[in-house]
Design a protein around this nucleic acid. Structure first.
Length: 453
DNA sequence: GGAACTCGCCAC
DNA sequence: AAACGTGGCGAGTTCC
């Protein structure tokens, strides 16, 4: 990991400077426009002094105390929330401008600023800490290389266009697929989960989508969307220890839309020519309450029938922790201290999943730096290609095009074949996906790449 | 003037 | 009966 830190990642300093000033111009223009609105003028009047558009307490106070609006949700400390979800639901156009400004400032002040500040001769050297995280995962700082925008298209493009390989090289990213789910299976050994992992014809999220939304998955874009709703709104939260009441509320708010506990025909996700809310109503799930009851049954089915071994492992593992005060991970580390019921099962899975990545990272480093002892058909030499970073279940390399083929094969062998050989407790196949950027292309330009033909 | 806090938001 | 896991970081705010 130290070698990757020293290697670093190239930053286009001139681009960062230009992009920051472009963002600043848009932020200033947006603020100017906002300051002319009656919403802002009334806010300023109530405030009695100049309004700070970045101040969360000021906005919360104005919306919920001065104007007396009903908060859509509250924060941990009971204050009216002003996060994106909460203020979007107030249906005030000016608040959309605040969301836009926040997003642009996030890109400028959190990411581009960090790159400019931390770069040395056009290279950043993020730290990858191995000693700070309770679960034995890693963390990264100065700058944090592990939270660079990915899902939001605009933010992803702006930020990742700043990061480059060395001249004549290309960036390669190799991700383990569903690593935590697979490593979880090594602990609980649930046969149904193992079947989902091993049999490519099966798909757990597709099955859950059908059950939750009462729809047979047909592969359409709308169904793909609902599949990810089931995955991120129910399955993963359940794995982490959440329960159906939260799941129902989150899913209904995000995908169905029901301000008064009843589905609205004109709001929410559409499937075919009707909305999800309408579809659920036609299926007899008339309100949020009935959807919650529906999810309650699904939760019991999920743990009692679909993954009973997983459920009993969770139970046993918690009993072990209560008796001994610690749990041991398959990778030899011990989780101790005050753990909640969820912690006692989440920590070992999360930690040993990362250790799989770390083992692979170290072995790849051995080979690239010419020190390897693994009996592979790979000549001993120092490679031009280098490891430059890691994001929990992904490895990022800076590859010379002449070595691409060899690197791809080697990484594939290490991550999916050598690792399970080294650790016999790995009882499920491991898979990796890869993405490749063009030669001299930025990290924004990555495209799917097959490691093995 | 800095530490500690809250809040929002990015990643896995 | 319970009531989602791990981080880093920026900005505003309050306290000492």
């Amino acid at each position: 990991m130290g070698r990757a830190e020293r290697q670093g990642i190239r930053v286009d300093v001139e681009y960062v400077r230009r992009e920051k000033s472009r963002l600043s111009k848009e932020i200033v223009a947006k603020m100017k426009q906002l300051k002319n609105s009656t919403f802002y003028i009334e806010w300023e009047k109530a405030q009695g002094k100049e309004v700070n558009l970045n101040s969360v307490p000021q906005l919360s106070n104005y919306l919920y105390n001065v104007k007396g609006l009903e908060p859509y949700k509250t924060t941990e400390t009971g204050q009216g929330s002003v996060d994106e979800e909460a203020i979007t639901n107030l249906n005030i156009p000016e608040l959309m401008d605040i969301i836009r400004i926040r997003k642009l400032k996030k890109i400028r002040d959190t990411y581009l600023d960090q790159f400019g500040r931390e770069q040395v001769n056009g290279v950043i050297h993020p730290f990858f800490n191995l000693h700070l995280v309770r679960t034995y995962r890693s963390s990264s700082d100065s700058p944090n290389f592990q939270n660079i925008p990915k899902r939001d298209e605009e933010a992803m493009n702006i930020v990742r266009k700043a990061l480059y390989p060395r001249p004549g090289h290309q960036l390669l990213e190799v991700d383990y697929g569903n690593l935590e789910v697979r490593i979880g299976a090594c602990y609980h050994k649930d046969p149904n989960m193992i079947k989902y992992i091993k049999d490519p014809k099966t798909d757990m999220h597709r099955d859950m989508m059908a059950q939750i939304f009462k729809l047979e998955y047909d592969g359409s874009d709308e169904h793909k969307y609902l599949r990810s709703a089931a995955k991120n709104g129910f399955v993963f939260p359940q794995f982490y220890g959440d329960y159906y009441v939260n799941n129902a509320k989150d899913m209904a708010c995000k995908w169905g839309e029901l301000p008064n506990g009843v589905w609205k025909d004109d709001l929410g996700v559409s499937i075919g020519d009707i909305t999800l809310g309408r579809h659920l109503r036609e299926q007899g799930l008339k309100s949020i309450k009935s959807f919650e009851k529906h999810l309650e049954k699904i939760q019991y089915d999920f743990w009692d029938n679909r993954f009973p071994e997983y459920a009993s492992w969770k139970q046993r593992w918690w009993e072990v922790y209560k008796r001994r005060g610690f749990v041991d991970m398959l990778t030899g580390f011990r989780c101790y201290g005050v753990l909640s019921r969820n912690d006692a099962t989440n920590y070992p899975i999360q930690g040993s999943a990362f250790h799989c990545l770390l083992w692979s990272f170290i072995r790849i480093d051995d080979i690239l730096s010419g020190n390897h002892y693994i009996p592979l058909q790979i000549p001993l030499r120092v490679w031009k290609s280098k490891l430059i970073g890691q994001i929990h279940d992904a490895i990022i390399l800076d590859v010379h095009p002449d070595e691409l083929q060899a690197v791809a094969e080697m990484v594939h062998i290490i991550t999916t074949k050598e690792l399970p050989k080294a650790w016999d407790w790995i009882n499920v196949p491991l898979e990796v996906d890869a993405e490749l950027c063009p030669v001299d292309g930025s990290w924004a330009e990555k495209e799917k790449y097959k490691l093995v033909a």
